[in-house]
Simulated scan of single mutants.
Amino acid sequence: MPDRENVAGMRSFEDLVAEAQSADVSGWGFSWLDGRAIEARPSWGYAELLARRLAGAERALDLDTGGGEVVNEATVLPRTMIVTEAWPPNAVRARQTLGARGVSVVDVDAGVSRLPFGDAMFDLVTARHPVRPNWSEVHRVLRRGGTYFAQHVGPASAFELIEYFLGPLPEEIRAGRDPQREADDARSAGLTVERLLTARCRMEFFDVGAVVWILRKCVWWVPGFSIGRYDTQLRELDEMMRSGESFVAHSTRHLITARRPAS
């Protein structure tokens, strides 16, 4: 566990917030939080499992790749490796990260349903925390016998933190991203779901700067977040954390493996 006295020390609320506001939030890495927050990971080890599948693929597509960090962890990449990203700063980071390895980074428009690829192009489609899985498109771009392998965000993930700022959310929002419902949607699109695992993981934040940074990065958690708008809640958090109490939340994840039938 980090030494919380070293994290915040005698630095003021204003200093911690200003530092978090000026820090880079592009890409999909979280090293800025080292020593300031922790999150347990699902037991299955997605990055390692992904690397094994990429090493055995010929043509692979990674959806919503962020800055390409997870794909880049794989030692061996397929002969044809393509990634998509909708947020321009992340796409720039992905090109910097993956370009030298011959990976094609394709910019896509957020909210556009059709993928810019031909039918049956890939034997492997992957995603780590996709914005919204489009099962009919996954089915379309997969070759017969091809596999979709992904780790999705689950229902009510980090909601302790989200509801601290927004207040209680409706049950239909809390129940979104349900793994069984997503598996049913995949089946309805013609895929065979071969594996579905779920996990609930503990998160802890040790200083208010860590909270500000994560809300700047995950902008959909608290839409319209700003320091001025949530000054009171942030100062209450800061006071709590200076007393030695961390803020605890829980992330939810599910691992899904689905296949387009060979016949």
Rank of each mutant, 00 (worst) to 15 (best):
V108C: 10
K217N: 00
E5Y: 11
H254K: 02
D24Q: 06
A156G: 05
L124Q: 02
M10V: 11
G224F: 06
P116E: 04
G190K: 07
I256N: 12
R128T: 02
A156T: 00
F122I: 04
H139Q: 12
S136K: 15
E137T: 14
F159Y: 09
H129P: 03
E73F: 06
A258V: 14
R144G: 04
Y46V: 07
A40W: 15
D34W: 13
E39Q: 15
D238V: 05
E245F: 12
V103I: 13
C201L: 04
L61K: 06
P155Y: 10
P155V: 02
P223L: 00
D185M: 11
F13R: 07
R140V: 15
S263A: 15
A158W: 01
E58V: 10
D185T: 07
P88S: 12
A175P: 01
P170V: 03
P2L: 04
G224A: 00
T65R: 00
A199K: 00
V153Y: 03
P88Q: 11
R59G: 05
A186Y: 15
A258R: 13
A51V: 06
G111M: 09
A186T: 11
T257Y: 08
S104H: 08
Q96K: 14
A57R: 07
D62N: 10
P42Q: 08
E171D: 13
G145L: 08
P89A: 09
S263F: 13
F206Q: 07
